[in-house]
Simulated assay, not measured.
Amino acid sequence: MEKNESEQPLVLGDVEVIRITEWAGPFGPARDLVPQSTAGLWKDNEDWLAPDHWQPDQDLAVMALQTWVLRSAGRTVLVDTGVGNGRERPGSPAFHHRQGDFLDGLARAGIRPEDVDTVVNTHVHADHVGWNTRDADGEWVPTFPRAQYLIPAADDFHFGPGNAYAKGLRQDDRLIYEDSIAPVHRSGQAVLWDGTHRIDEHLTLESAPGHTPGSSVLRLSSGTDRAVFVGDLVHNPVQILDPACNSCFCLDAEQAVATRRRILERAADTRELVVPAHFGGPGAVEVRRSGGAFTLTPHGRR
C-alpha cells in the first residue's frame, strides 16, 4: 500500500509531534524480519497485531516508513528521513529507484524544506537517511538547506570510507553513504556526536548501539510528558513482548538485546511513550513491566 500523508498532531507538553508516512504495507515474511520469534508469539497476539503489524493469512509483517516531525522550542526537527527518491539500491528492491511524494507530505503539514532546523538520523540505514538529500541536476545536495544534520559518529565511521563502507560487505552501504551522508559533510551541515547530545530543553539524543554501532534514541521530556523515539530498536511489537528477538538487520545481536531491554525498562519505569520508526497503527505504544517481561498498549487505546 503506497501512502504519504501527515496525520493529526500529537501534543506532548510543549512539543507538537507530526507523523509523515512515506510508505506503509506488508514488508515480508514475519519471521524473516524477526528470525528468533516463534510462530506462537505471533499467533497468540493475532487479535491486536493484525492488521497494523501483521497479515496472518500470508504471515507477512506490516511496517511503515515514516518521519517524525517535532516542533520544539521554536525549532522544526525531523527524526529520520525515509528512503528518498531515485536511489541506487540494488540490494533492496523495494527501495531501488523508488519515487514518492515525501516532500508533498511535508508541505501538507505546512513544512517547507527551508523551515527545517535540525535533522536527526537515528542511524545510517537506507530507510532513515534517504531524504537527507535530493537530486539537483544529477548532483546530490542537502534537501534541507538550513538544517543541522545530527549523525551518530560511530555510524558515520562504520559506514564511511574510513572503514571502507562497512568493510564492503554490502554494495548498498557505499551507495547510501555517498548519496545521503557525504553531500551533507561537503555542505558543512553534518554534526557528528557520541554519547549524548542535547538539542534543546526538551530533546536529547542518547547512544543506543547494537542495531548499528551508532544507533541512537531521542528522548522527549516536556512538562509531565515523556517519549522516546527509538528508531530501529524494535521493528515490530513482538520484540517488546520478547526483547531477546532481534530483527534480521541488527549487526551486533548481543548488544542489540541488551540495549533493547535497557531502553524498554526505562520507558516502563518512567512512563515514556515508545515511538518506533516503523510501527503502523497509532505508531506509538505504552510499555509496562509484567514480571520479567513487558506488556504494551497502542497509544490512545485502552
Rank of each mutant, 00 (worst) to 15 (best):
R108M: 10
G100V: 03
H97E: 13
R108V: 07
D59E: 13
D104K: 07
V69L: 15
W131F: 10
P51Q: 14
P93D: 13
D59I: 01
W140D: 01
R71A: 08
N85R: 05
T143N: 00
D137P: 01
P90I: 13
M63W: 12
P152G: 05
A109P: 12
P51F: 14
G110W: 08
N132E: 09
F159V: 11
V141R: 02
V141S: 05
Y165C: 13
N121M: 01
W131N: 05
D57P: 10
Q148Y: 04
R98D: 01
V116Y: 10
S92N: 14
E88F: 14
V62R: 09
D127R: 11
H125A: 11
A136Y: 09
Q66L: 14
T81G: 14
A109K: 07
F95P: 08
F157A: 06
H128R: 04
A109D: 13
F102Q: 07
V120Q: 09
D101T: 11
Y165M: 10
V62K: 07
S72V: 01
A61T: 09
L150D: 04
E46M: 06
L70D: 07
D57W: 14
Q99P: 09
A147Y: 01
R146G: 09
D80S: 15
A109H: 01
V129E: 04
T118Y: 01
N132V: 02
R71F: 05
E88Y: 14
V79I: 15
N163K: 08
A126I: 00
D127W: 05
G84E: 03
D137M: 06
V83E: 06
A61C: 14
A154S: 05
F102Y: 03
A107C: 12
Y165Q: 06
F102K: 01
P90D: 15
V79Q: 00
L65M: 15
A164K: 14
H158K: 13
V119L: 01
V141M: 02
Y165H: 13
V79W: 09
H125I: 08
A109E: 08
E46G: 04
V79H: 01
D57V: 11
V62P: 03
A107L: 05
